[in-house]
Nucleic acid binder design. Structure first.
Lengths: 237, 237
DNA sequence: AATAAAAAATTGGTTGACCAAATGTTTTAT
DNA sequence: ATAAAACATTTGGTCAACCAATTTTTTATT
């Protein structure tokens, strides 16, 4: 019964403003290079405070859609094509993403990270990964939950992969993973122990510079979670 | 000679505040669940306006490090481990990433997107991809630059892949790709024409639901750019 | 008429004051 | 002694006024 309820959409002023700007861009009334009306004019026209307009611009600037020039104006600089419609909307709510999508993407990133780590890891990287693994083991042996230590180990692998963009993307989705892990209680008894062993295997392959073996081990390691997320989805449908 | 100059770091108040909060979290003085001092107290202590404090909190909230509860306070909710240090820093300047990292990650995401698109594309997706390809072709045939149309075609593929997270990540890195493309003038004569043919092949495989062939075609398609980015790196070193 | 200098208007950046919701404290009733 | 209600305080959210840099317009000069 509960699953028939949908979360009530609370459209904040900022969301509405973003929607309007998006509309102008996607309908072609605003093209790349064009200058946005001044914050004051926008605020007056939209009937809201300038703060809200500023917040909306700041968010869109973060995504590279807009660019603000101090004391001069705000211009459209993103890919400004009609079809942008619908795309911006989604990126603004990554947190609501399906768990299964999250896990799928994570697996992709992590598998590649493990592969690259095996190719590029330095001695220092090995130390970092070892330390993270030790911290994880310590918690597990005391019977404590170790979700964070788990992810931290994975992040050090990304670090060793020596690709800042890939690492950044992992950092972006990590909080969502943690949220879902704790909420859905993915971590049942025994999972941590088996996880620990799998971690050790992965690290072994990375240290010995076996890219494909490391990648495979990582993929298998994450397979459990994948399966679980799919089960969740089926039960809900 | 010019390459010996380094960009001068202009640390804005917001950056400094983020740095301090990061320091508190990584040094363990602030743990997940803890409440941050009120914005007023922080502003006074740091000797800056409350607006700057709010901006800093907003940014950290975006990354999932903090969570603001209206009229109540701001709490730490991210993975709050000591080793977080150094990681947050990087994610805050994705735009400065090495072009080669960007291309490498893009290839990873796009290859997977093509694979998934071939498995999951609907009839509507096919129409969208076809439209995007037509728009690209129209520009190319008129001898016009078509960087945006190019990327838009790729985004429709991601759309067809039916993974919102992966699509979001592509959207996040897309502006940086555009920036580097135009800056580095990757698109030389003839590239667009060959690119067009490759696009057609990829679309063909997706329409006919050949995941691995689509993935391979995409990888090859992006190989040119990869090679070019590596050349750039070597020349600079 | 062309150019340069100066003044006015406009811009985003910043601040402090005010608002309503949430929280903590005291008072009051049982 | 306990619980509930009333009050006061603190919180983040919002707004309007002010600031300095920029852009535009006007004016003065050649």
């Amino acid at each position: 019964m509960l699953k028939n309820f949908r979360e009530i959409a609370v459209e904040t002023p900022v969301d509405k403003i973003i929607g309007q700007i998006r509309g102008l861009i996607s309908s072609g009334q605003l093209n790349p290079g064009d200058r946005l009306p001044s914050e004051r004019k926008l605020a007056e026209k939209l009937g809201v405070g300038r703060t809200h307009v500023r917040d909306a611009i700041a968010k869109l600037e973060f995504y590279g859609i807009l660019k603000t020039l101090p004391q001069s104006g705000t211009i459209v600089e993103g890919i400004g094509i009609t079809a942008l419609e619908g795309l911006i909307t989604d990126v603004l709510k990554l947190e609501e993403s399906e768990f299964v999508d999250l896990v799928e993407t994570r697996t992709l990133l992590e598998t590649q990270a493990a592969r690259m780590a095996a190719q590029r890891r330095t001695t220092e990287d090995i130390i970092n990964m070892k330390n993270a693994l030790d911290a994880y083991e310590a918690k597990v042996r005391n019977g404590l939950p170790a979700v964070e230590e788990d992810l931290l180990f994975h992040l050090t692998i990304a670090e060793a992969g020596r690709n800042t963009v890939l690492k950044s993307l992992m950092l972006i989705i990590t909080p969502d993973i943690v949220k879902n892990f704790t909420k859905l209680d993915v971590c049942k008894d025994g999972r941590f122990y088996r996880s620990l062993e799998e971690h050790k295997v992965i690290l072994e392959y990375i240290v010995n510079q076996k890219p494909e073996l490391a990648a495979n081990a990582m993929e298998e390691h994450l397979q459990d979670v994948t399966d679980y997320s799919k089960t969740l989805k089926e039960n809900r449908d």
